[in-house]
Design a binder for these strands. Sequence first.
DNA 1: TAGATTGTTAATCGATTAACAATC
DNA 2: TAGATTGTTAATCGATTAACAATC
Lengths: 221, 221
Amino acid sequence: MEQKKISKSVLKRLPGYLSYLKSMPEGAPAHISATALANALGMGEVQVRKDLAMVSDGGRPKIGYLRESLIFDIEQFLGYDNTTDAVLIGAGKLGQALMGYKGFDEYGLNILAAFDAHPQMEKTEEGKPVYHISKLTSFCRSHKVLMGIITVPAESAQEVADQLIAGGIKAIWNFAPTHLDVPSNILVQNENMATSLAVLSVHLQAQIKEEKEIKEKGNKG
Amino acid sequence: MEQKKISKSVLKRLPGYLSYLKSMPEGAPAHISATALANALGMGEVQVRKDLAMVSDGGRPKIGYLRESLIFDIEQFLGYDNTTDAVLIGAGKLGQALMGYKGFDEYGLNILAAFDAHPQMEKTEEGKPVYHISKLTSFCRSHKVLMGIITVPAESAQEVADQLIAGGIKAIWNFAPTHLDVPSNILVQNENMATSLAVLSVHLQAQIKEEKEIKEKGNKG
DNA sequence: TAGATTGTTAATCGATTAACAATC
DNA sequence: TAGATTGTTAATCGATTAACAATC
């Protein structure tokens, strides 16, 4: 391995391998082949092998990869070993759901606090503080926060992004369904439900159309 | 236009255009050029033009596309005009957040009911019924539901998917962080937070490393 | 008419897949 | 040894970008 530049497509597949590997029972064999992984996840085995080559220092022919070190290598590569502090803006339902999600630990993500234009409470159920949005920029600066999670309505998202950037943030996880304008050194990762829905919707349309055609043929025949 | 087969990459960009177009104020000009759209969304103008060509029946040189009909065309293409009924399984925080999200109307998505292994309530805040999971398959069949939204923990996701498929569902929106094994005619769209987090995490790692190097250089110099 | 903008055709780029040699 | 599996090199595929002709 050792830092060939990784492509985004590969990067996006790594969490899938990781989660599958971690979900395997203790009793499972210590080694796993790319072939087995590929079959389990419904992927091509060559692709899996190439992906793994990017992060691991190799498997053994006929045996495969040591599961334990594969997990370690992927986690290390993804930076799940060192914790990232984050703030979340918008303590609505989605925001609260994210604040309450225990699983983020596993990804090295630690949400320090929530911010809201109209805080309804002082602390979330999990005991994380909820501050007024006016404190956002200074909080980010003083806590050296590098990541912001935006769960406000689309209208306020750009404004929030600007404040985050003013606070020194380098990456934004954007759940608001809108495009954010940011300097080129800031990464915006859009969690866009609309995108997924589009894919689903178009698939269903095709399905419905297909069924209708079959039915019509049946009636005529 | 007229049904050239659309690629997934194009499909995924359409909601972005749509949302931008819809967000424009009433007072804005009736026409918009691909160039303007591209600049607003930080994309290449050729790409935008090609994408629009897939769904619209053309703009006019020097003038651009009629905004109104572009919106109509994209919505039609994405099937947002006819409503899709869906069920949601897993009435936890995320599930409730999705149940309560008003914006799905806009995408033609209508969540009929929620199902849970241990229902905590009879109805959600929004008045949608919450049933025991044992009713899932028969409900899907009798209501001819085509889409299932899975917001249960990873361990139970496959089981839920199987029940959905038994109920005749054709598309699954999967929020559980796990791979689902399904027949090839069923579409699974994974809403995978882990994927996004991986991208963000790797970006931040690179940022941190870069900063450290600059600082070290500064100290030496 | 001149020029902005469209749509198309060709060139480039990147990612996936196939073929094959290396190895335990 | 034989064969499963790895890793690499080459071929294919698809998507993006560039160049350019058409048009209002």
